[in-house]
Design a protein around this nucleic acid. Sequence first.
DNA 1: AAAAAAT
Length: 495
Amino acid sequence: MKFADLGLSDELLKSVIDAGYDEPTPIQAQAIPSVLMMRDIIGIAQTGTGKTAGFVLPMIDILAHGRRRALMPRSLILEPTRELAAQVAENFEKYGKNHDLKMALLIGGVQMGDQVKALQEGVDVLIATPGRLMDLFERGKILLTGCELLVIDEADRMLDMGFIPDIESICSKLPSQRQTLLFSATMPPPIKKLADRFLSNPKSIEVARPASTNINIVQHKVKVASRAKREALRHLLRTDNVSTAIVFCNRKTTVRELAKSLKSHGFSAGEIHGDMDQSARNAELQKFKDGVINILVASDVAARGLDVKGVSHVFNFDTPWHPDDYVHRIGRTGRGGATGRAFTLVSPEDAEAIDNVEKLTGGAIPVMTLDIGAAAEPDERPARKSRDKAEKPQRAPKAEKAASEKPARRKKDAAPTAEDTPVHTESTREEPRRDAPRRDDNRRDDYRRDDYRADAGRSDSGRQGDRRREYRSEPPSPPGEWNGPIPNFLHVSAL
DNA sequence: AAAAAAT
């Protein structure tokens, strides 16, 4: 399958080829012809699957016909974060260079003046985060009645962020005669409901199972006492052939402190999180893209969709609370067919979270132990379960495990791991058959955690808080499996 | 337990 077979115009094909692409990704191959036929689409796809070009390319051809008018954008793309919106705008610029199309990027954190001016001059494409779009709409700076093409990107993320009421309100301002494309990595009931309400006879396109991880990413979890995390990270940064890395933390404060610490240890690091103003965020991201720094310490503002070429490593300094975020974070590496490496530093506090991640992704992540000193004196409690002991032989853990354990269930997980994992790798779990039901359990948990009512807005957080408490009051799961003495620190040699 | 998004 070639791009030339998808029905795109010649001049558009030229920009695609100039950008270095020849073969469409699966989602592009499926989405582009349908979008060109003006179908509504529900696309279930992770970021990194080429989803953006999947809608940007056909949109350019659709918009090539017709005229733009002041204040009346002809199409609208909604994105959950400013960075994502900016990225989609870059795509439009790249692929639309042979077309006379105007776009406006409507995001918060920047002056409204230029945005208003662009709207007054007339735009073909509006790329927006919901907040700023609503703001401008309420100020009467936009008319959405001419907007006959709508893209709702990362819908599940929008849901997480409480944007669904905004989305509904925006949808109701658009003409009912329009084409709507909805993309989401997962399809929880509220998103399905949204799709039922605002899409007509949509074509479903699914390219990757939700929450599956890219086969090009070699994953490890590194057991480490929480106070040894920084040292473990530095060790990995120095020894694992890191060219460019994103280090994710769960808290903005951790991001700040870690970035500072890395710098003081001589690393070329920067930071990005939501407490920084937009220009600082942009500047750090640009430094990272330009190679001025090669380590970006980030909050989950950068977890989804961020597309920086050539990120060799993703480190999870903390295991994300929400297992979906794990998939998104590590998806920042291994892009475009390259091989990436993802390390998750797992301290006892991360035990429950990593457990949820493994349930979601359907496979135990291989464990790696480091031979760094600080990790050898962790603050753990004695082992509690016999299973734990069985999994912590002092010697040759691998051989023993290999005999007793079934291979990872999904080949795609097993393949890169087997060939690329250092010798000192073991698997911590032996319950493969429970995978399927537990995955379902986990998903139900997801639904319980968030408030999915259509009218749930940010002002409704009290209710959400109640639910969270309810969720958390369930019986606590046992502490981390490796709370017992950490096994000998096997030397990890050639990584 | 967090983060994000309008100011």
